[in-house]
């Protein structure tokens, strides 16, 4: 019962700290808001980058082109063997007929090619098998495995497009690991910067409450009574800041996102925000409140030690 009473008083005093020092509170909220913007922006940047990379990675595959006279059962055996490999995401068969349709579609306007296909009277193309790995790093290994374990008993393999793709795949692997590292560094840097700014600022805020802390200590108050209201005030600052950030970023970016979707496509940060509304909101609120709480606790602790 008495714990509840204490908490109630601490909570009430926290609000009083906020309301009775309007300029300090406003300034704190602005500072935390700016810090949250920094953190949120780096996070969105990372999210967009990661999403786009994942999409690009998904488009990469390795194709095994088979001879036109590959019997159907052999084709199916080939596919099921590949499916047993580790790290395979999807295996898709492009039949002779599909290949021809695609081919004709691509050369729709080229009369010469169309005519020569017509003259042949039969489908000169073979089926192919497109393999997509969960991790783009392992394409080389998949091709190697196929050559080692399947090709000796399988005379129908014409060629693999890995060589054509390998350059792109290597480039992509390199780019995404560098890009991810950069965005981790950015997140770490901006978070640290935000925490630093908030810390310095809260130091000033609590410095103005020095008398209060001093008197409370003198009359023998327990630490929770001394730091409790500051913790509450910090959380309140964080809450309002998060509210401002969410209330501006989310609707604005959703709106901008819809307007610019056709221009940016998958890389559109606004669309990313729109699609990740709930996690971003939760993240912003918890980060804001955490930031306010930790900053005020960290600063009050300095006064409690003395």
């Amino acid at each position: 019962m008495s714990l509840f009473r204490d908490l109630k008083r601490i909570y009430r005093d926290g609000w009083k700290l906020v309301w009775r020092n309007p300029f300090v509170s406003l300034a704190s909220i602005i500072i935390i808001t700016l810090s949250l913007f920094l953190i949120s922006f780096t996070l969105v940047f990372y999210g967009v980058l990661d999403n786009s990379l994942a999409k690009i990675e998904q488009r990469v595959d390795v194709k095994f082109y088979l001879l036109p006279d590959t019997p159907k059962p052999e084709l199916e055996k080939f596919v099921s063997q590949i499916k047993t490999f580790k790290g395979i995401d999807k295996v898709r068969i492009i039949t002779k007929e599909e290949a021809l349709t695609n081919f004709l579609k691509r050369y729709e306007k080229d009369q010469l090619i169309r005519r020569s296909i017509d003259e042949l009277g039969e489908n000169p193309l073979g089926p192919s098998v497109s393999v997509r790995a969960k991790d783009p790093h392992i394409y080389g290994k998949i091709v190697e495995e196929v050559n080692k374990r399947i090709v000796p008993d399988f005379p129908y393999l014409d060629h693999v497009n890995y060589r054509d793709n390998s350059y792109i795949i290597e480039r992509l692997n390199l780019f995404s690991s560098v890009a991810r590292k950069i965005s981790y560094a950015l997140i770490a840097f901006f978070s640290a910067l935000a925490v630093f700014i908030v810390l310095i600022f809260m130091g000033l805020v609590i410095y103005s409450a020095k008398t209060e802390i001093w008197v409370k200590r003198l009359i023998g108050a327990e630490n929770r009574y001394i730091s409790g209201p500051f913790a509450v005030a910090g959380i309140i600052y964080g809450f309002f800041s998060a509210f401002i950030v969410v209330a501006t970023v989310v609707p604005v970016s959703s709106w901008v996102g819809k307007l610019t979707q056709s221009f940016f496509g998958d890389m559109n940060p606004a669309v990313y925000v729109h699609n990740n509304l709930i996690p971003l909101t939760v993240f912003t609120f918890s980060t804001g409140m955490m930031l306010g709480y930790l900053a005020s606790m960290f600063v009050v602790r300095r006064y409690l030690k003395k």
Binding site: K16, L17, G220, A221, E222
Partner: peptide
């Protein structure tokens, strides 16, 4: 050493609140 953002009443009562 009065607490500037507490009223007269609160400047007195918080001392007792601290002791529960």
């Amino acid at each position: 050493r009065l607490i500037p953002d507490k009223t007269v009443k609160e400047n007195i009562s918080f001392v007792m609140e601290m002791l529960g």
